[in-house]
Amino acid sequence: MFVDVHCHVDLYPDFNKVVTQADKNGVAAIIAVSMDLESMGTITKISNHYSGFVFPSLGLHPDACSRTSEINLTKAVKLIKNNAKNLVAIGEIGLDHHFVKIKELYPWQQRIFREMLRTSQDLNLPVILHTKGAERLIFKILDDYKPRDVLIHWYTGPKDLIDIGIKKGYYFSITPAVTYSKNVQYLVKKVGVDYLMTESDGPVEYNRIRGEPKDCKIIVKKIAEIKGYSEGKVEEVLFENAVSFFKLDLNI
């Protein structure tokens, strides 16, 4: 069985079909991550509809900082706390200094990020991190907080920070990009299977093919190839990693 630990379920126009395909391919759970205040509300509704299969992780993505006011930040924290008993994580949160080019927004990004980290501490929930282009700063900021656990999604570098992440006990989720990305393959080589998970980041496209939860099977196959382990062993370990990390109560 598989768990897709990072999926933007609200962005699929045909999510019912996505769920059907996921179920046919052995996916037992999907972690639905939010990006902004609006998607937080949508994901809450979707996860309620697919209770026991889709699990909500609410947070403010750094890309949403330009459309997040101080009032919206307050509303987001309140929404998170009001739904705390149903949440499995805070995310997708972090910093982005790669796709977000307006440097004047970086302090506001950090303000939002720190508020999300404080909220995760208050609720004793793990965090799902977006680190693109701001990896060193994020690792430094994390030292100021104590989230229950840390999952870094789709990490591609710098390579020297991987060892620091390993020492700190951070988890890393692997996308279908592992089938072609040398950076992702390097990460898989470095990190023990006990700290890896699978994610689609759907509906992001990989080689012009839409990512979906069903792709977790492909990811496990490639990880097994890189590690020299059996697919069955990798599937079992990564599944247990996700269930333990998110404390999932599955309908299986």
Results as ranks from 00 to 15, higher is better:
Ser244Ile: 06
Lys17Asn: 15
Asn25Trp: 06
Lys227Pro: 10
Tyr170Cys: 07
Arg67Ile: 15
Gly157Thr: 11
Phe246Ser: 01
Val188Cys: 10
Gln185Gly: 11
Val88Leu: 04
Val220His: 03
Ile164Asn: 10
Tyr155Asp: 03
Lys221Asp: 14
Ala89His: 04
Glu115Arg: 13
Ile252Pro: 00
Phe113Pro: 00
Gly133Lys: 10
Lys214Ile: 12
Asp4Gln: 11
Ala242Ile: 06
Asn48Ile: 04
His153Pro: 06
Glu240Pro: 00
Tyr145Pro: 05
Lys24His: 09
Thr119Val: 11
Cys216Gly: 11
Tyr180Leu: 07
Gly133Val: 04
Ile252Leu: 10
Leu37Asp: 02
Asp249Phe: 03
Ile162Gly: 01
Glu135Gln: 14
Asn82Met: 13
Lys85Cys: 02
Leu161Val: 10
Gly59Cys: 05
Leu123Glu: 08
Lys81Cys: 12
Val193Ser: 03
Ala134Val: 11
Asn86Met: 02
Val127Ser: 01
Ser51Phe: 10
Pro147Ser: 09
Gly133Thr: 08
Pro213Phe: 04
Ala89Met: 07
Lys222Glu: 15
Ala22Met: 05
Ala76Gln: 07
Val18Gly: 00
Lys140Thr: 14
Ile138Thr: 04
Leu11Pro: 00
Leu151Cys: 08
Leu137Ala: 07
Ile30Thr: 10
Ile128Asn: 12
Ile164Gln: 12
Thr42Ile: 15
His130Gln: 09
Leu123Val: 11
Asp163Ile: 11
Thr42Ala: 13
Arg118Met: 13
Asp122Ile: 13
Phe172Ser: 07
Tyr180Cys: 07
Thr131His: 07
Lys190Val: 01
His98Trp: 13
Lys168Leu: 11
Ala28Cys: 12
Asn25Met: 13
Leu137Asn: 11
Val3Gly: 05
Pro56Tyr: 10
Val243Gln: 05
Ile46Asn: 01
Asp122Tyr: 05
Phe246Arg: 02
Val54Gly: 01
Asp194Tyr: 04
Pro107Ser: 09
His8Glu: 10
Asp163Arg: 14
Leu196Cys: 05
Phe55Trp: 11
Val3Trp: 05
Gly228Asn: 12
Gly211Gln: 06
Ile46His: 03
Pro147His: 09
Phe246His: 02
Asp36Glu: 03
Val193Arg: 06
Arg148Val: 07
Gly157Lys: 14
Met1Lys: 09
Asn124Asp: 15
Ile80Gly: 02
Thr179Pro: 00
Gly232Arg: 12
Lys182Gly: 00
Asp14Asn: 15
Gly133Leu: 04
Leu187Pro: 01
Phe172Lys: 09
Phe99Glu: 05
Val178Leu: 08
His98Lys: 11
Tyr106Ile: 02
Asn124Met: 05
Leu73Met: 13
His6Val: 04
Glu135Lys: 03
Asn241Leu: 09
Phe53Asp: 04
